[in-house]
Simulated assay, not measured.
Amino acid sequence: MIEETESWRRIGTPVHGGIVLVSDHASNRVPDDMELGITQAQLDDHIGWDIGVAGVADRMARRHGIAAHLGNVSRLVVDLHREEDHDRLIPTESDGVLVPGNIGADREGRLDRFYRPYHDAMEDWLGRAAPRLIVSLHSFTPAMASDPDSMRPWHVGLLYNRQGTAARHAMRLFAEYGLTVGDNEPYSGRLLNATMNRHAEAHDRPYLAIEVRNDLIRNERGQARWADMIADVARRTAELIG
């Protein structure tokens, strides 16, 4: 089953008390009535979305029964993984790329049109699903264009704020695959954890905030491999946390 609105898209039906997936940056779509002033190539890069996560989420839903709630608009239109008052909610620059269409943007208009419907729908969906574990899926670029000498060596990272138990289990399980695993890398969940702070930690819902290096999931083969690994780690983590 697929449901879709302007702000969110869903694949599959949650198993009550099971595992679900959310992904804030799964789309680089810009509405037809909006002009950001950047190229399609720039939108297709990591500044426009989290490369590869939509394909991974689709496979996890269809092959592993892990239903997904996905953002359906580019992070450059509004960043769904920020608090409402965050100064980069509507970025005017990203990794050295100017986004002229966001200068003087209607902040409240974008909150009402995209951000609030996305998070309100997620909260209702999670409330009805009562998940045993939430997988929050993101991807990261191997090196920022603005800092090309700072390579990020991790294959995958686990982010967390106050709730670290599930993340620590998952770090060990990913390491068993022979992966280089980051602990609150390449970003710290103590600083950047908006969606899971709101929908997981605030409700005492266990979660895994997973960051996959995007060169590993750019093609279908990589997406299929990582969908299988993440589903396996999520299920084993859910068993370990009870």
Rank of each mutant, 00 (worst) to 15 (best):
I47A: 04
L21F: 05
R162I: 07
A68E: 00
E6P: 02
N193I: 04
D147P: 01
G104S: 08
S74R: 00
I2V: 15
G101E: 08
R128A: 13
E93M: 10
F114M: 04
Y187C: 08
R132L: 11
D85F: 07
W226N: 07
N102G: 12
E185P: 06
I2D: 14
D24I: 00
P31Q: 11
G12A: 06
W8V: 08
A26G: 10
G65C: 02
V99S: 07
R62C: 12
Q42V: 03
D120W: 00
A166W: 00
A209C: 13
L126Q: 07
D228M: 07
E211G: 14
S23T: 12
S146P: 09
V56T: 11
D85I: 05
V20F: 02
W154I: 05
G48D: 10
G12T: 09
A175T: 14
M196I: 09
R29Y: 08
Y115S: 06
L216A: 13
L36M: 08
H25Q: 02
S23M: 03
L137C: 06
A175G: 14
R128H: 07
E211F: 09
V233N: 04
A227Y: 08
A121F: 00
A57I: 05
L173Q: 10
V22K: 00
H203N: 13
P142K: 10
H81E: 14
T5M: 01
Y118I: 06
D228W: 04
A234H: 02
V22D: 03
D44K: 03
P148W: 00
G182R: 02
Y177W: 02
A130I: 02
H86W: 06
H25L: 01
A67G: 12
N193C: 13
